Computed example of a mutant assay.
Amino acid sequence: MMKTMPRFTFSLLFIFFFHCSTIVAQAPAPALSPGPAAPPDIYKILTKAGQFTVLIRLLRSTQVGNQINSQLSDSKSELTFFAPTDNAFSSLKTGTLNSLSDQQKVMLVQFHLIPSFISLTNFQTLSNPVQTQASNTYEFPLNITTSGNQVNMTTGLVNTSISGTVYSDNQLAIYQVEKVLQPLGIFAPRAPAPAPAPAAPKEKKKSAASKSPVASVDASGAVGVKRNGIVSIGFSLLLATIFL
């Protein structure tokens, strides 16, 4: 009896440790906490959506795209962007974009950007003119109205509507539009320059008649002739008339 006791104890210990190790091996690994989500990148979003090649090029050349991504890196920042398609740009008059200055191109892109997040159901709450990142003055008016589920907008030169949602995440909303929003401050026809004032009439030269001899009559009826500034008086003629 004394000899079998250690073997029995050892067997119990072996079973105990084997059971414990099995429980530990089967325990689930602790879940890793997810890191902060990366901010949205407007270049990646538009590239993935397709049909925004011209807009992406314009965002890069004006650096407005970089400014948008910089703003979105702050989780408190909100933006709404109206994205014209390649067809929208192709419908512009040939050479329109090339005729704009660098500053006008920046203002054009910023005119499509609203500094707040607006869902499709909240456009009806906006007050006109809507403030954009370009300006809300009379030169850059953007008026937005709704009709049922349709969102319409006008710049005074262009009327269009939202044709679809490209992206929305409660911080950034990108909506597709089929026309480029053309603000009055850049595309309004300019008044023609006033015509130059007519030239003043030239002073007329003295006529030849003013240089010819001028007959003059004095109080006595005598006639004299003024030639080259010298006046001869017909006094002798007067005396001859008296004595005749």
Rank of each mutant, 00 (worst) to 15 (best):
E203S: 12
G95R: 08
Q103N: 02
V180W: 02
P213H: 14
S207M: 14
V130W: 07
A188T: 01
Q133R: 10
I162S: 05
P196Q: 10
I15C: 11
S116H: 09
F16E: 01
I144H: 06
I42E: 02
V225M: 15
F16N: 08
Q63W: 09
L100M: 09
T145R: 04
G148D: 13
Y138L: 13
S212Y: 13
G224Q: 12
T4D: 09
K211M: 15
Q104Y: 04
N98T: 04
V180D: 07
V24W: 14
L126T: 04
Q26F: 01
P141M: 15
S163H: 05
I23T: 05
T53R: 11
D74Y: 00
Q51F: 03
I45C: 03
P34R: 01
N98P: 08
T155W: 01
N143I: 11
K226W: 13
S232V: 10
A240T: 06
H19I: 07
Y138M: 14
K211F: 15
P129W: 03
L55F: 06
S210H: 09
N170G: 08
A240N: 12
K105R: 08
R227L: 15
I174Y: 01
S75I: 12
P196I: 06
S212A: 14
S236C: 09
Q124S: 00
H112P: 14
D169N: 10
L13I: 00
F14L: 10
L238M: 14
P39M: 00
A219S: 15
Q124K: 08
A37S: 03
L108G: 03
L108F: 03
E78N: 14
